[in-house]
Design a protein around this nucleic acid. Sequence first.
DNA 1: TAGGCCATCTGGTCCT
DNA 2: AGGACCAGATGGCCTA
Length: 182
Amino acid sequence: SLPSSSSPSPECPQKKQKARRGRTKAKSEVVLTKQKRNRRMKANDRERNRMHNLNSALDALRSVLPTFPDDAKLTKIETLRFAHNYIWALTETLRMADHSLLSVGPQELAREPFRQPPSTACLLELTSPGSISPCEWDSLYSPVSQAGSLSPTDSLEEGRSYQAADAPACLRHSPHAFPEFV
DNA sequence: TAGGCCATCTGGTCCT
DNA sequence: AGGACCAGATGGCCTA
């Protein structure tokens, strides 16, 4: 950062000697006020830029989330929640893929203490979830009801679960997006 | 018109 | 000292 090139005083050098006595204090207060205002303006500018950067990052995040172009833009909080759940779902997908590769039987999966995983069929349908029943979607994206599970909402929500009614229209109705936040 | 979302300003606090 | 970060306040815009 620049060393805040101490902005040259607006006073011209010749007048320095004259306007001294008696008014010194008042003048310095004016200067102080000016400096204060200047610092505030600079701070506001930085804060504005900071928020713009934050919004840019949020836009970048929105752009990688699976929604339709004609869907209403996700709000900030919706974007964060959706991303959180989306990452969780992808993680589950990878985990299930690993299980499949290791040829773990369904009975083994059912016995897993962590969580009853969604059906393989459900995962295979991930790219075209329209045929998945609501309860299967629930099993994939709504693990919050299972005690001890690592819910996608655990770290983001405090006590309050994100109901379907809170979700943006695209996520509530689009068959290609996650039907619910929980 | 109320409520939600957002941008901006502002003062406080922490860090370098 | 100055910058980054944060949270509260405020006002504008939009929608049901």
